[in-house]
Amino acid sequence: MNPSVVPAPGAPAVRARDLDVVRSGVTILRGADLDVPAGEHLAVLGPNGAGKTTLLHLLATYRFPTRGSLELLGHRLGRVDVRALRPHIGFVSVALDPLLEDITVLRTVAGSAIGSVAPPAAVLDEPALVTAAHTALERVGVDHLADRRILTLSQGERQRVRIARALASAPALLLLDEPFAGLDLGGREQLVTVLDALLTEPDGPTVVLVTHHLEELPTQLRRVLLLAEGRAVAEGPIEQVLTSAQVSSVFATPLQVVRDADGRWRATGVTDENRRVGRS
């Protein structure tokens, strides 16, 4: 890790101004502004094709904006060596799975501290890396899987290992790209519990989570960005953004948005019948 590239004290985790992303003549992201203070957390919601994954790839430094400015952890893209910045950014995505070898969970997670997706067995001879790996696995509740091989894990177990791998390098910014994809109901609820605990850690990373579904939002998330057709429709406190009107507009479907007593969110379609009930 380049010691000269560290998160700037007091700087926001993310500061974006007027971001455009154009690919093959198609504008994927248009005029996006975003501020995520260090230590706060953000959910990014929107339908397929809204630009969510593109935005996350920008924040992961795997893509650069066509226009506009983007600062991550106090460093502006285009003026910083992203190879030195990336160790401070944890990126969790199933798209990275083909890069992982079928080795033990402990070796996989320990290797993340040296930036390797296929670390040599010798990584387990480094006590500091092994300790960091066990600590990360404990944080997401899967240290008991340390000696299992990656391909023997269920989808839910594998997703928690992906998050542990990102946490092992102690990132300042953690990016979760649709972390609930492929999970069954039990796996989803277990992961929501894990994320809620992570979001309340006083020294934990700033988290940006991308999802399609309100039901997947941890209760500790306080801010939301709604994207549609590459544009930011609304961003701010979750109670102000997740209204039935705004969510219906973004997903182009009549929806009723409800927050349950336990703090979880859900959206259901509005039918002619429940319209009549609502008017009665």
Rank of each mutant, 00 (worst) to 15 (best):
N2M: 15
V6C: 11
V6E: 10
P7T: 09
G10A: 13
A11K: 06
D18I: 05
L19C: 14
S24M: 05
G25V: 01
T27E: 09
T27A: 15
I28N: 07
G31R: 14
L34H: 04
P37W: 03
A38E: 02
G46P: 00
G46A: 03
P47R: 02
K52W: 03
T53P: 01
T53Y: 05
L59Q: 00
Y62A: 07
S69Q: 12
L73G: 06
H75D: 02
G78M: 02
G78V: 11
L85R: 01
P87H: 13
P87L: 07
H88K: 08
I89F: 14
D102N: 09
V109R: 02
I114H: 03
A122R: 06
V123E: 00
D125K: 11
E126W: 14
T131A: 14
T131S: 13
A132Q: 08
A136H: 05
L137D: 07
V140Q: 05
V140L: 08
G141P: 03
V142I: 15
V142R: 05
I150Y: 09
R160K: 13
I163A: 01
R165K: 02
A168F: 08
S169C: 15
S169V: 15
P171C: 09
L175D: 03
L183G: 06
D184Q: 03
G186N: 02
R188N: 04
V192K: 10
L199P: 09
L199A: 10
L199T: 06
E201I: 13
P205W: 06
V207E: 02
V208M: 12
V210C: 06
H213M: 11
T219P: 02
L226K: 00
A228F: 02
A232R: 03
I238R: 04
E239H: 12
E239R: 11
Q240S: 10
F251K: 01
A252Y: 04
T253S: 04
L255W: 10
V257F: 05
V257H: 06
R259M: 04
R259Y: 01
D260P: 01
R266H: 15
D272I: 11
N274R: 10
